[in-house]
Design a protein around this nucleic acid. Structure first.
Lengths: 237, 237
DNA sequence: TTACAATACAACTTTAATACAAATTTTAAA
DNA sequence: TTTAAAATTTGTATTAAAGTTGTATTGTAA
């Protein structure tokens, strides 16, 4: 039944792969348990495990201890840390980046922000307004609101560096970022800060981010330089 | 030929999601209580809670302690990571979608289009200009170029229905879409077609799509109604 | 020696069942 | 109208059983 020319676990891996495709198993769906696979292909569970491990290393499936083995979702590799770095890279302008902190204050949030961050009335937030600069040119204006209770030791120096790096160093697990992208016409202040000559339409991103337990930890509005930034992205089915 | 299924709580989440859509539950309306959902789907309340938590993380619903779980207010959102056609998107929102074909002709592409679609000089393309309408309101203007060689039997009727459905019915596998999103001010023609009163900035998407073998099969420019359409990212870590 | 099989057990997840706490909404009483 | 109690609903915790993956050990055949 089994050729001995190739390692058995590789043959099994190939059969599992074929079956996943031919059955049209969708992303997120579970494949049979290791015990069942062993029975189906008439091999030992050890061999099945080696085969599954191969497929997992390929990225086709992933195993969850105690739960099962699932077919991977075909997702865009989107690094939440680098949404801004992503666009900078696209424009080829990631030279000598820096952050200029325009405002940094502890304040009471307005209702909209309080709502997004799910805060009680007495909770305060940091309001940070910073200009992101590359090659001496202002490219991005960012306004962020961060709950004081989550980041009691937030400082200007932190915001000059990587915000997300700081958050993860504190042991928080970043989970999702919900963002809305919309076109706007720049205000006078915005034109001044980004050194805009003409009032060309530009992109504005409104986002709130959550930790793995669902707690919102940031609400931010980001304004992108109209000429130097277009959003490029690749979506896969 | 195996039974493969998602975890129970994911199935429940999907059923709840479907029921919200099929029942036409409006934003702000409550969904059944966890106890009722558990009874309806014949699962435990724990499972229902996990499912609801999933939907809450997605942003579809939100729960209020002691009160209930409610459907989030929703604009028409365009999830750009889901490579989804307009028809499918709208049918998910039960908005009675339709397409009005403004132009349909076989022509020789200009150099830019020929370059994107990797065509020889003698190859021709369909040029289709269509207005996409939901609930009687024009929402999207799309200009597409499709190679004649790939779709020799393309017709106006096809373009009145779902383009991507047609492509997949022909046995092609859609793979990627490379897109570039940028803000513009609408032209006079655009304002007229989309029934815009004021010259508000709007979004324009330029994209080319490829099949799984890498063949480009479409180049298109899409203009989105500025008020009714927002672009939504959900990035996960 | 190496690859595979067989077995046993550990660690973890899922689901269920139950009880109670906390917040909101409804109802009833004053 | 105001206040207080009751009912409803979501949030949290615990326990338990069954199922699945992870790990280790030993045996077997080429």
């Amino acid at each position: 039944m089994w050729k001995s020319s190739r390692p058995l676990y590789k043959q099994v891996a190939n059969r599992i792969r074929e079956d996943i495709v031919s059955n049209g198993t969708e992303g997120g769906e579970a494949i049979p348990t290791e015990a069942k696979l062993a029975q189906m292909y008439d091999v030992s569970r050890v061999t099945v495990r080696r085969a599954v491990k191969l497929l997992a290393e390929e990225g086709l499936v992933y195993s969850v201890h105690g739960s099962g083995t699932y077919v991977s979702e075909k997702k865009i590799e989107h690094d939440i840390y680098k949404l801004q770095g992503f666009t900078e890279e696209m424009s080829g302008l990631h030279n000598n980046p820096s952050n200029e902190i325009l405002e940094f204050q502890l304040t009471s949030p307005d209702d909209a922000v309080r709502d997004y961050l799910k805060l009680r009335d007495d909770q305060k937030v940091y309001y940070v307004k910073r200009l992101r600069i590359a090659d001496g040119q202002p490219l991005i204006l960012e306004e962020s609101y961060l709950p004081y209770d989550l980041f009691p030791d937030l400082s200007v120096n932190v915001m000059k560096e990587s915000k997300y790096e700081y958050i993860e160093q504190k042991g928080y697990m970043i989970n999702r970022r919900h963002a809305d992208l919309r076109p706007i016409l720049p205000s006078g202040e915005l034109m001044e800060l980004l050194h805009l000559e003409e009032s060309a339409p530009m992109l504005c991103l409104e986002a709130y981010s959550t930790l793995s337990d669902g707690t919102p930890f940031e609400y931010s509005t980001v304004y992108y330089h109209p000429v130097k930034y277009t959003f490029k992205f690749v979506s896969e089915k």
